[in-house]
């Protein structure tokens, strides 16, 4: 059989099997959180009681597998602390997912809407919106997601604009997302900002961590697993890293086999010439 002409569907089946079997076997590995993940966790733990944390959920179903577990783990941590939480969304499709995370991880810890947190919902505009929040969050978001005027929400007392926020966490799947937050918010007001992002975009943001503009970053499912380990809850991230690891190995094996075939072919061609 000529390996180079193998029907692609055999490769698909092999990949599916390599992912499904460890998934069903619930294979899991001990997770040692990255320094970056630990930096975010520690920074939130170090916030004094009553500090204001803004979480912007800028993702959608296409990145749900990576960012939803991060969101859940983050809300578990925030729920344990006595912090004021403001939630915004730059992507309309993040709305129901955030609500779901609140219901599962944050509200069960005895939190009360309006008193401990406010969900300001979605607004379009991306960079314009973030920039407006530097001047007035309340003018950009006149009502919360339930239609309550922001002036009547207790948790927002004394909060005017982004400068009154002590810590930002941006869960970002693309544009608008963490880049806009860095450009329009962090670089202007200099408040600590952390980000959880899809693995596709993560490599483009390490330089901002290195420069101190980001406290830390969580990349993809591994980032979610790291954060679950820190929060002490085994969820979709940690259990996902089992099959994930086997998938990585298969891709590496494919690259190696493909290249061995290529080198043999090249040597033969040279000899023939």
């Amino acid at each position: 059989m000529n390996l180079a002409k193998l029907d692609r569907r055999w490769l698909y089946i092999l990949m599916a099997v390599v992912l499904i079997v460890p998934f069903l076997a619930r294979i899991k590995f001990p997770i040692v959180p990255s320094d970056s993940a630990r930096a975010i966790y520690d920074a939130i733990e170090a916030l004094p009681d009553g500090s204001v944390v803004l979480v912007s959920a800028d993702y959608d179903p296409g990145s749900e597998a990576e960012l939803y577990p991060m969101n859940l783990a983050l809300f578990h941590q925030l729920g344990k602390r006595n912090l004021k939480l403001i939630i915004t969304q730059l992507w309309p499709q993040a709305g129901p997912l955030v609500k779901d995370c609140l219901d599962k991880a944050y509200l069960p810890q005895g939190k009360v809407e309006g008193v401990d947190f406010v969900n300001l919902g979605y607004k379009p505009g991306g960079a314009v919106l973030i920039s407006k929040c530097n001047e007035s969050i309340l003018a950009a978001f006149p009502e919360d997601v339930n239609g309550t005027p922001v002036s009547e929400i207790p948790v927002l007392k004394g909060i005017q604009n982004s400068k009154d926020v002590d810590f930002f966490v941006i869960l970002s799947a693309g544009t608008p997302g963490i880049r806009e937050w860095l450009e329009q918010c962090q670089s202007r007001i200099g408040k600590p900002m952390a980000s959880g992002m899809t693995a596709v975009s993560a490599p483009d943001f390490f330089q901002y961590e290195s420069s101190g503009q980001l406290v830390g970053l969580l990349g993809g499912l591994r980032g979610a697993a790291d954060y679950e380990a820190l929060v002490g809850r085994e969820g979709r991230g940690i259990l996902g890293m089992g099959p994930q690891s086997f998938g990585h190995l298969l891709i590496i094996i494919f690259i190696v086999i493909g290249n061995i075939g290529y080198l043999i072919g090249r040597r033969r061609a040279r000899r023939a010439a």
């Binding site: 998934f23 990145s63 693995a199 499912l221």
Partner: peptide, 23 residues
């Protein structure tokens, strides 16, 4: 190369997300 490695991770994660849903 680093970006490619991370992209592989992202793609696999999305499929695992669907497995988690289906099972």
């Amino acid at each position: 190369g680093a970006s490619f490695g991370y992209t592989v991770m992202a793609r696999i994660s999305l499929f695992i997300g669907r497995l988690q849903f289906l099972f």
